[in-house]
Design a protein around this nucleic acid. Structure first.
Lengths: 140, 140
DNA sequence: CACACAATGAGACCAAGTATCAACACCCCG
DNA sequence: CGGGGTGTTGATACTTGGTCTCATTGTGTG
C-alpha cells in the first residue's frame, strides 16, 4: 500500500500530485530494495508519462523525510529501500533482495571503542549487513 | 612511499610496468582517500601519458589484492583508500579526508544480534565511520 | 631473436544522476 | 470568475564515474 508513503509526504507538506502518487504506488508494489532504473522501467512499461527527473526528484524528497534510504550493494550498485524514519540499519538478502531493518544493537559500543583507539570524534556511521533471509536460506 | 604497494603487487604476480609504477607513486603521495578523478587529474597535470582505463585497471587490481578499498562517502561519492589487506573498517575524517583503520572491535556481537532478531544468515557487512581526526578537531 | 600474450591509450560507450527550461497545474487574492 | 505567483512536470542536454573495444606496444620465455 502506498498510503503510508503518501500520508507521510502529506504531513511533511509535500503536494500529492498525480505523478507522485503513481511513483509511490510503484515503490509500494516492490518489496525489498529497488534501483532508480527499476522504477523508471516500471513507469515506462505502463506508459505512465512520468519522466526520469520526476522519479529522482521524488526519491530525493522521500530520502529527505527518511522514508527511503540509499544503500550500496556489495557489487557497487545503488539501491533504495523504503523504511521507517528512525535511525536503524539494513539487512539485505543477497539472494532475493528482501530487506529487514534492525535498530541499534550495540553499535555504539563499537563506535566508541573505535573512537577511543583512533582519537577520532565519530559523527556518523553507516552499517550494512548482507546475508540470506530465512526464505532463501531454506530454499537453498 | 609507493614501495609497499609495488612490493605487494609484485608478490601477487602482477607485472610492474612503467604506468603502474607511476600510478602507484601518485597513490602513495596522497594520504587519506582519493577519488579516481583525483588520480586522473594528477596524471594529466604531470603529462604522464597514462590513460583513464589504465588507472581504473590498476585500481581494480589493487582492490582485488585488498590493498585499496572503495568507500562510499556520506555525500554519495566514491573514494578509494589504500589499506592493509586484512579485514577492518575505515574511519574517515570528514574535514580533511584522513583515514584510520580499525580492526574488528565488537562488530561480531552486533551482527549476531541482528541475525538472531531477523532470522537472516549474515555473510558480510560493511561499516564506515565518519568523524573528525584529532588534528581537525583541535584546529576547529 | 621470435613469438605469444599481457598491458596500454584512445576513444566510444554506458548508467546513474543533475541541471535547465519551457509548459503546465494549482492556489490565493481580488 | 480571472489573473498572477509559485511549485511541478517532462524532455532533453549534460556530467560523472566507470566499462568496453581495439589496434598498438611492451615483455618474459624459450
Amino acid at each position: 500500500m502506498s498510503d503510508e508513503l503518501l500520508r507521510a509526504l502529506d504531513q511533511a507538506g509535500v503536494r500529492l500530485t498525480g505523478p507522485r502518487r503513481e511513483i509511490a504506488a510503484l515503490i509500494a508494489k516492490r518489496n525489498g530494495h529497488f534501483t532508480a532504473a527499476d522504477l523508471i522501467a516500471d513507469a515506462g512499461k505502463r506508459r505512465l508519462g512520468v519522466g526520469r527527473a520526476t522519479i529522482f526528484r521524488l526519491l530525493d524528497l522521500l530520502a529527505e523525510q527518511g522514508l527511503v534510504e540509499r544503500v550500496d550493494l556489495p557489487d557497487g550498485r545503488h539501491a533504495y529501500v523504503p523504511c521507517e524514519p528512525s535511525h536503524h540499519h539494513h539487512l539485505v538478502c543477497v539472494a532475493c533482495g528482501a530487506i529487514a531493518e534492525v535498530e541499534d544493537c550495540g553499535i555504539d559500543a563499537v563506535t566508541s571503542e573505535a573512537s577511543r583507539r583512533s582519537g577520532f570524534t565519530i559523527e556518523s556511521h553507516r552499517l550494512e549487513l548482507f546475508g540470506r533471509c530465512p526464505n532463501c536460506r531454506s530454499a537453498n
